[in-house]
Design a protein around this nucleic acid. Structure first.
Length: 291
DNA sequence: CATACCGCCTGTTAGC
DNA sequence: TGCTAACAGGCGGTAT
């Protein structure tokens, strides 16, 4: 998502929207007044910047509505393409600009993503602004304002497992199933470890590993697992080539050589090394669930 | 209140 | 060969 934000910053910031065409109702489902209203509100607006928090992107607009929010779901793409470029089968929305240059297109095969409008409100710390509808999304670990110690404290105070905590976007954002498994592998932690029994140094180390995983992915241009994730120029990232655990069931752990395990987890999968990341012993009566 | 987990979508692919 | 079922996954909503 940061890769996409950088692309938008380069290619669409400063440009004025001429027409907006919503081509699939699911892409605009969060804009309740409908496609015609959506188009009317965007016409003539100039995009003033490109912002991101976790997996949400937003483009602040001059003259209100405050901003256009984009969430790509798992298969969404924002592409900057010539006006005569082929639509393809999954084009969901199109932005044409007053300068008649390249268009911005929202393409989304599985339609989990979407676009909507929102107003900007100050963050609780007053440091900047955020769309009102995503104020519950936490900062991500690459955000200079992310509070490591605050996250460690919060996680240790909860009664859940560490993988669930990593995927909880209201505590730490930007972490999906792939990056959660990779960071847990790097930190040698099994995702089922109870958060209230992890030490402060262990959790600090986990944030640090997460930052490394994010940094490496960003340097490689993002993660593309099935070629659906691409940047605004249609180039896909190649970070998937450097995954250590995710998707590697049966292959050797790059650290110890043991075969990577895969288990069903929350209607998806978890990948881990059973030797480096041992399954935690179940808590029993003697240990006490509440301790 | 805190935590757990389903269902939304559709194209690809494994398996029969 | 042609079909079915599993799978990918962020997150809002609902159940516990």
């Amino acid at each position: 998502m940061e890769t996409v934000r950088l692309g938008l910053q380069r290619w669409v910031v400063g440009r004025t929207i001429d027409t907006f065409d919503l081509l699939h109702p699911r892409a605009g489902r969060r804009h309740l007044p409908g496609a015609a209203d959506f188009a009317a509100r965007l016409a003539g607006r100039t995009i003033s910047s490109a912002q991101r928090r976790g997996k949400y992107l937003w483009l602040p607009l001059d003259g209100g509505p405050d901003c256009l929010i984009a969430h790509l779901g798992m298969s969404g793409q924002l592409l900057v393409l010539a006006a005569d470029a082929d639509d393809g089968p999954h084009l969901r929305a199109r932005f044409s600009f007053a300068d008649a240059g390249q268009q911005l297109r929202f393409v989304d095969q599985r339609t989990f993503g979407g676009l909507h409008l929102d107003k900007l409100v100050p963050t609780v710390d007053g440091a900047d602004t955020v769309p009102s509808g995503i104020a519950h999304i936490a900062r991500d670990p690459l955000d200079p304002q992310f509070d490591d110690e605050g996250w460690v404290r919060r996680v240790r105070g909860r009664h859940t497992t560490i993988k669930r905590a990593l995927l909880d976007q209201s505590s730490i954002s930007g972490v999906g199933n792939i990056y959660a498994d990779e960071a847990l592998w790097a930190a040698r932690l099994h995702g089922d470890r109870p958060t209230d029994r992890l030490s402060r140094p262990t959790l600090r180390s986990l944030v640090s590993q997460l930052r490394t995983v994010f940094g490496d992915a960003l340097a490689a241009g993002g993660t593309s697992f099935d070629s659906l994730y691409v940047n605004v120029n249609g180039q896909s990232g190649y970070f998937d080539r450097s995954l250590n655990a995710y998707g590697r069931v049966g292959q050797a752990c790059p650290r110890c050589g043991s075969p990577i395990s895969r288990v069903a987890w929350m209607n998806r999968s978890s990948y881990f090394c059973p030797v480096c990341q041992p399954v935690p012993r179940r808590r029993t009566g003697a240990d006490g669930v509440r301790g």
